[in-house]
Design a protein around this nucleic acid. Structure first.
Lengths: 122, 122
DNA sequence: ATAATATATAAAACATTATTTATATAAATT
DNA sequence: AATTTATATAAATAATGTTTTATATATTAT
């Protein structure tokens, strides 16, 4: 019962639903999410931790970047997250994605302009 | 998105999951739930209100009693509540049900002993 | 009519969560 | 080596949610 409670608690916050919705588009690093949601980084990290504790997302460290993705290994959790994804049709979610796309585009363009690796989320 | 949030918020409390689990056994009045959970009545009423606001349960007034039941009209909500019901296998939930049964039994015995209608949840 | 009962609601106290601000850590760059 | 960058964590504050206690309302019983 405690595990189930943690899942529902994790899903009962708007910011976290927005993050789940973003991760539907694939693995993202913290700075991607920060850019998409226009929130300060510790806030995003806090919510990522809650989602991870509930077992809804997984992380992967690569250099100084931390990448997060949906954990779809558990059928129940997967259903719940898919339900979330299906049910949310929110202006805010659309805007999050637009910001994400813009941010990702800038990143890749920046990459072309220089060979530096000291750039966010390369 | 707000509706979905309300559903998850409603499900992210132990007392409310216990109530949902009890209502699986059929419609109950407030005093049944109070007896089963061994909680004070305003507390139970508070949680019933949260569940109702989220659209997870429906109520029906009969005399001075208020009866609550699961609202299974919405497929998504139904799935979620069924998931809850399936996932919870908790000692506490078993005890809740035992208390409910004892309470219901006493009620029906009391009913046989007298013709009075001024008795809880007749 | 008066009393008793079932439930709801409001206010206060309490507990949990979320947000901000500041700082720490570790990796990559210069 | 010193600096910058990405992220995490801790402490303080703010916001929400829950529980308790007291009271109100409506229905039934006497």
């Amino acid at each position: 019962m405690k595990e189930l409670l943690n899942i529902f608690k994790a899903l009962s916050d708007k910011t976290r639903l927005r993050i789940i919705k973003l991760l539907e588009h694939g693995e993202l690093c913290v700075c991607d999410i920060v850019a998409a949601l226009e929130m300060v980084q510790p806030k995003v990290s806090f919510h990522l931790r809650v989602l991870k504790k509930a077992g809804l997302i997984k992380d992967r460290k690569q250099g100084k970047w931390m990448h997060y993705r949906l954990d779809e290994s558990d059928i129940f959790k997967r259903f719940v997250t898919v339900s979330v994804i299906e049910k949310i049709s929110d202006t805010m979610v659309k805007e999050d994605y637009e910001r994400l796309e813009r941010f990702m585009k800038n990143k890749s363009e920046g990459l072309e302009a220089t060979t530096s690796k000291n750039r966010c989320c390369v």
